[in-house]
Design a binder for these strands. Structure first.
Length: 313
DNA sequence: AACACCTACAACCGCAATGAA
DNA sequence: ATTCATTGCGGTTGTAGGTGT
């Protein structure tokens, strides 16, 4: 499997599948010189491979401690849990699975777990959160983290909401643009981000600051919890909110003080390290959670494109 | 048997971070 | 402070082998 054709590039380097002889040269080199200095390898051994290719071959295939094939149930469970927590940070996930490479886990995820999860929740609403800045991505499917990238079976039906680039230091608000339910966008201002973060710790519990003080990970955790309980009623509410907001007017009142008080773990003090409160009786519904996202468009927010949330059927 | 399609996975690519010069 | 090389990461691609028709 994999690639087999051997190509010589313009600079005389070989690309494509590695031969047994090349592997042998690489292994011998690493035995003698240790890992690293990959660029020197080609020079010193005459191997017609770039350093990058050598490193990849060693890390993903030739390393003696690599465990190959048959990912166990325990490993799979761990991968799923880690992915739920970290998104597509394959190297971090691989770091928790001795002998497994990031490439292997990525391949396994893309070819097996994602499909399995899709099959498991074929008709459930899904939500995908993408933190482009942190390079984190979480797909929630009825509360279960799914795959990276493509949301299942709803191509052309995504609603996109773009949030601020850094949950810890920025507000989440702004006008929706786009064409209604098909692809609404939530926008924000990076200049405003600076203003708000400078008042952190002193600000009142406005809905904006409610979101403001969470790291993207904490925010994802909140969404994970809330969306496990997402039902048609608040899906509709959310969709109505998006539709109405496309006119650019204030749609929903801010989160009530009552909601804020009932969710002490979600207060602005979370910035100091509090974790989201997972007590059911104190849960904010998905619609409540997202109400603060739809604020007055006259605020002058500009586009920020570092975090996406996709709602999909 | 032949062909088309699917799956698994090795390898490549582009980008960002890091460190040395 | 800047430039450049190296390293590491995640996304994507290409292909052998498997499976279905």
């Amino acid at each position: 499997m994999g690639r087999s054709s051997r190509i010589s590039s313009k600079d005389g380097l070989t690309k494509g599948a590695w031969s047994a002889l090349e592997d042998e040269i690489l292994v011998d080199y690493v035995k003698t010189h240790g890992e690293g200095k990959w660029s020197n390898l080609a020079k010193q051994t005459g191997l017609k491979r770039c350093g990058k290719s050598c490193r990849l071959r060693w890390m993903n295939y030739l390393r003696p401690d690599i465990k190959r094939g048959n990912i166990s149930g325990d490993e799979e469970e761990l991968i799923m849990r880690m992915h739920k927590l970290l998104g597509n940070r394959w190297s971090l996930i691989a770091g928790r699975l001795p002998g497994r490479t990031d490439n292997e886990i990525k391949n396994y995820w893309n070819s097996y777990i994602a499909k399995k999860a899709k099959d498991q929740f074929p008709s459930t609403r899904s939500v995908e959160i993408i933190d482009k800045k942190a390079d984190a991505r979480v797909d929630l499917h009825g509360g279960v983290a799914l795959s990276s990238g493509v949301c299942p079976q709803q191509q052309g039906k995504e609603d996109v909401i773009q949030l601020n680039p850094d949950m810890k230091n920025a507000a989440v608000t702004g006008p929706l643009s786009g064409n209604g339910l098909t692809k609404p966008k939530l926008e924000l201002s990076k200049s405003r981000v600076g203003q708000l973060s400078s008042t952190s710790g002193e600000v009142e519990n406005t809905p904006t600051n409610f979101i403001l003080d969470f790291s993207s990970e904490e925010f994802c955790n909140m969404l994970d919890y809330d969306f496990a309980k997402l039902n048609d009623a608040n899906i509709n509410e959310l969709e109505n909110a998006i539709e109405a907001e496309s006119g650019g007017t204030l749609l929903n009142p801010p989160l009530s003080q009552e909601i804020m008080e009932n969710n002490g773990g979600f207060s602005s003090s979370a910035a100091e390290g509090d974790q989201p409160n997972n007590n059911n009786s104190n849960m904010v519904s998905a619609a409540d959670l997202f109400q603060p996202l739809f604020l007055d468009s006259n605020d002058g927010w500009q586009l920020g494109d570092d975090i996406d949330i996709l709602f999909s059927n």
